[in-house]
Amino acid sequence: MIYTNRRNFVKRSSLGITGSLLLPSIGFAMPSGEKYGVQLYTFRNEMAKDPKGTLEQIAALGIKKIESARSKAGLYYGLSPNEMKNTCDSLGMQLCSGHVALDKDFDDTMRQAVESGQEYVICSSLPSKGQNIGNYKKVAEAFNKAGKACKKLGLKFGYHNHEYEFESDKGEVLYDVLMDNTDPDLVHMELDLGWVVVAGKDPLYYFKKYPGRFPLWHLKDMNMHEKISTEFGKGGLDIATLLQHKSDSGIKHIFIEQEEYASTPMESMKHNMKFLKAL
């Protein structure tokens, strides 16, 4: 199993950073040459207040890849798809992916994704409820259909897991049902490693069972006691071992995500980048 027991940690706060905060260009260079990305939900409050200024601060940390997340202000925090693309380009970052909903507005979601230049559109939650095999087969069918529609436009459709997909029904793990009933050429999985270990599963098992099916990762360390995210090295995720086996998963993009923080999102990300450099 890929997690270990750790001591309890102090309660996390979600204190924000101000848009006017000036950060030096740290520019962490990863020994492996890996260009790490970030899921912008990590900076959700900051992006809502000042998307361009926050992206500048993220770029100063050496982050090279971006995955957006839909918000009350739209898919790109109030920016148009073209504005989001141009802002990332100007900062030397690549907008690779975005979290979206598979809903009645999915045609417009795809249109915006094409305009933004991103490669992946990732469904961030199940489009229909029901923790049973029947619903997961229904969802798989909807995912295959969405995958076909995306492929016609030059996009790649995928799904991001949480903890609940690893529950079982009639002796079958529901995530496995989803994997077994989706076309690998149409549905590209984004594996949230933190939620996998919280569910009591081993990511390496899934790399072996479904080789090459996970081109996207959410690299997220977890406080196993409180089941909340934490800074790298403070939780139960064996990051070093997972990175050693990343090729087994078919990895193309690694997005760091953190939802709770010891102080601020920016300080947590600085810690995480230093941790990865030390590996």
Rank of each mutant, 00 (worst) to 15 (best):
K138P: 01
H253T: 06
C88M: 07
L216R: 11
V121R: 00
M222L: 14
L40W: 04
K64F: 02
A29L: 15
P211F: 11
G134R: 12
T54Y: 06
S263H: 06
K156M: 08
T182K: 04
L193Q: 02
S247C: 08
K220I: 02
N135H: 13
N272A: 07
N132G: 09
K104N: 09
Q258T: 01
F143N: 00
A113H: 02
L126W: 03
K138Q: 14
Y175L: 12
T241I: 11
K148R: 14
M222E: 08
Y164I: 15
F275L: 02
A48I: 10
P31V: 09
F9Y: 10
D50R: 13
D221V: 02
P265S: 09
K170Q: 14
H99G: 01
Y261V: 01
I2A: 08
N86P: 03
K65D: 10
E260I: 09
S20Y: 14
K138C: 06
Y206W: 09
Y210M: 12
S168N: 15
L174V: 04
M273Y: 05
M1S: 13
L153H: 03
F157Y: 10
N161L: 10
F28N: 14
K138T: 12
E260A: 12
W217Y: 12
T241S: 15
N144R: 04
A142L: 12
Y205F: 13
N144T: 05
K201V: 14
F255T: 01
V38Y: 03
A140Q: 04
I17D: 11
